[in-house]
Write a protein that binds this DNA or RNA. Sequence first.
DNA 1: TCAATAGTGTCTGTTAGACATTATGGA
DNA 2: TCCATAATGTCTAACAGACACTATTGA
Lengths: 224, 224
Amino acid sequence: MSSEQKAPPPPYTVDVVMLTPQEDELALLLQWTSPSDSWSLPWDTPGEHDTLDGTANQIAERATGTSPAWIEQIGAFGDRIPHSSGADISVAFAALVPLGTSAPAGGRFAWFKIDALPPLAERQQVIVQHSVSVVRDRMDLSPVAFRLLPTSFTLSELQQMYELLLGKRLHKASFRRALQAAWLVEPTDEWRSEGRGRPAQLYRYAPKKRRKGRRGVRFDLLAP
Amino acid sequence: MSSEQKAPPPPYTVDVVMLTPQEDELALLLQWTSPSDSWSLPWDTPGEHDTLDGTANQIAERATGTSPAWIEQIGAFGDRIPHSSGADISVAFAALVPLGTSAPAGGRFAWFKIDALPPLAERQQVIVQHSVSVVRDRMDLSPVAFRLLPTSFTLSELQQMYELLLGKRLHKASFRRALQAAWLVEPTDEWRSEGRGRPAQLYRYAPKKRRKGRRGVRFDLLAP
DNA sequence: TCAATAGTGTCTGTTAGACATTATGGA
DNA sequence: TCCATAATGTCTAACAGACACTATTGA
């Protein structure tokens, strides 16, 4: 910010949508904001020499204590209603936080299931919706699912993670065939017995190949 | 902007990357900026009650005289070097402008082939690169190519447009089969003879179906 | 033993991509 | 006539999705 005077309303905020898997659902981290007595996305205004990415990372670390497994800017959002800080626009980031390790520090933060959020300001609702769809659109472009799991995992766990992030069911045999073709995982010697059925072999993330030329002229176009 | 005083540096700018097909290449619209005596992306700062989208549209219309065929926000960009206006961040939009109808108004604007741009500020270079890759990534999700062509066009012209926007060659037979399967065009009675070979039938854009559920578990993943 | 889950083999329909062939005009 | 381009048919390999089957544990 380039004003040395009082403290004008900040020109823009950085808001972070932090998502984590929780009991087969996506959960979102919110913070309790005292002046307005309501829940909001964690946010801040960048300091004088901060980058947008750097600020977003700081916000995420402050809230969870660790670096997110993945974070990406999803855009700038502005409507005619200013942010609670008075800022005209908010630059929003979506982030994924590993399973389990995501205990909110202090009492000001809490996780909410994505389908049962408390009331949020309208702009923040839009940001949350947009973040979830960006995550779902880009999941297959980035091997993020692996970073949300422990280093060893079963293929069923991996598939469940993909299903959670993509928001749809996947076909078991096809999923495994595609995994094998992509050379992304390798089996370990360990097996894990979990409840009733046959024990599952544990795998680890071990990418071997890069993508070859993907096939395809597709016209899966949206309607005009 | 919420200050009633002098005129502090604007908090952020809206910058628009306008692209158009030109002789089998993409071309970019730049404006000559007098104080700095250099080329830059067309930009402005939003007025008090403007939205980001509205501001971007105004910039595009002012520069070309018409509405762009497509426009989408691609994100907020900030580095430690301020915009020439003094703004910390720029909210960037990518836009596509129809073939031909894109004569720049006045003398302050000019089209440049995307591979032969004049020197730009570093942030603007990043914005341009990012815009082009966003266009290439999202082309297959939106039937924009049709809006860049006249109402009647040959299938070869359409394919060339797709190749230009996607930045890669497509297979002719597959392209046509996919087009037919998508019910996006219908033939007219007219034919056009162009140079040597057999005349081509003209088609018009006439979408009939919506997309059905697309198949696929794909692991065309990027390397870590 | 039964129930539940892991993992695999096979078949089928779809389709991208390659190749070849026909069609039709201009030079 | 030859050449260039349009348009189409056929074959093949890849692959998603369905289904069935085996394997291996706990209850």
